[in-house]
């Protein structure tokens, strides 16, 4: 860990101004950043501590949704009565992540911005285009059991590890930000994450110095909600595949469907066209299989993660079966 300067800011705009300086990093829960600093994967020269900002509330919005402050801890968000009653998929996704201790510390904004768990990203002796652009990707021909099967290319095959973001994606959440001028921007979560392309080091559409202040949820969509996470042990393991789904059925037919997958791509993987094609489709294995095929179109494995393709198929099928059960 290198020496750094530390600053506690009094407003989101101040945070944005401070964070815009070269080598500055915002610190909230620190559950990911501090580990990365010990390993010198991150070497910030300046820390902007936002923990004292007034961003830890969950408020009702006028249209019947919720506005979640960026500093709301994962544990608090998962336990909030409104979240549990109306956004069960989000509560469950949160509780499926990390450990109780980490959830007590981790924040909503920080969770969105957590870094990949690619082993090579965490080891500065290894090539990694995300860490050192142009150095290569050790995972491509290396150990890649946890890696992506969709949305990646030969520059980087890392996944985004968040469970929370997958649930927020099916809930059509928006990320609210502020910059140093106090200008507020609302980014639909669909546009928040970027695919790696040739710049895997750029993971989101946030601009330099732009600070997340809140995540807003529209009113809950109709239908049942499920979050299913598949992992190598019962707790404290990242998703191999996860599925967040909100599906509404009537008379044996699908009225609406929202489905996002985690653990298989650099962002929560949702395809609205596939969801649209499900509207009106009869509940049953044929529909589910077709949906799974459409969802996974273009998926490819890199060796150790080949199993994720059949696994994702099975979990999609299983979740759709369960969520449409009469």
């Amino acid at each position: 860990m290198r020496s750094f300067t530390y600053e506690r800011v009094g407003s989101p705009a101040q945070a944005a101004a401070a964070a815009a300086k070269p080598g500055a990093r915002i610190i909230a829960g620190g559950t990911n950043l501090l580990n990365l600093m010990k390993l010198q994967v991150e070497t910030p020269v300046h820390h902007v501590d936002v923990n004292r900002l007034d961003l830890a509330e969950i408020e009702d919005t006028q249209n019947g949704g919720l506005r979640i402050g960026a500093l709301v801890r994962n544990s608090d968000l998962a336990a909030d009565r409104r979240i549990r009653e109306r956004y069960g998929v989000l509560s469950r996704a949160l509780l499926a992540g990390a450990s109780a201790q980490l959830r007590n510390k981790a924040t909503t904004g920080g969770n969105l911005l957590q870094r990949t768990r690619c082993n090579y990203f965490y080891d500065i002796t290894m090539p990694c285009n995300k860490r050192v652009p142009g150095s290569g990707c050790a995972a491509l021909d290396g150990f890649n059991r946890s890696h992506a099967i969709l949305g990646v290319g030969d520059q980087c095959i890392a996944t985004h590890p968040s469970d929370m973001a997958v649930a927020m994606r099916v809930l059509d959440a928006s990320v609210e930000t502020v910059d140093a001028d106090g200008e507020v921007r609302v980014i639909p979560i669909a546009e928040f994450y970027r695919l790696p392309g040739n710049t895997p080091q750029i993971e989101t559409t946030l601009r330099a110095g732009e600070v997340i202040t809140a995540v807003t949820l529209p009113p809950p969509p109709p239908g049942r909600q499920i979050y299913r996470k598949v992992r190598d042990r019962a707790s404290y393991a990242f998703a191999l595949v996860s599925v967040a789904a909100v599906v509404d059925t009537a008379n044996g037919r699908i009225r609406s469907a929202r489905i996002a997958l985690g653990g298989i791509a650099p962002k929560p993987w949702r395809i609205e066209q596939v969801e649209a094609s499900l509207i009106g489709a009869p509940v049953g294995a044929q529909t589910f299989d077709a949906a799974a095929t459409a969802f996974l179109e273009g998926a490819r494995g890199y060796g150790d993660n080949d199993f994720k393709i059949p696994l994702a198929r099975r979990i999609l099928h299983a979740v759709l079966t369960e969520i449409t059960r009469v």
């Binding site: 450990s99 080891d123 050790a138 021909d141 150990f143 042990r233 019962a234 707790s235 404290y236």
Partner: peptide, 25 residues
């Protein structure tokens, strides 16, 4: 331990990635 046979290193060298049972197991 997952060996990277190109480099001779264990890729999963921390307790987040080298799995031992947790209480829930």
């Amino acid at each position: 331990m997952s060996l990277d046979r190109r480099f001779g290193c264990y890729v999963n060298h921390d307790l987040a990635e080298y799995h031992v049972p947790v209480h829930a197991d």
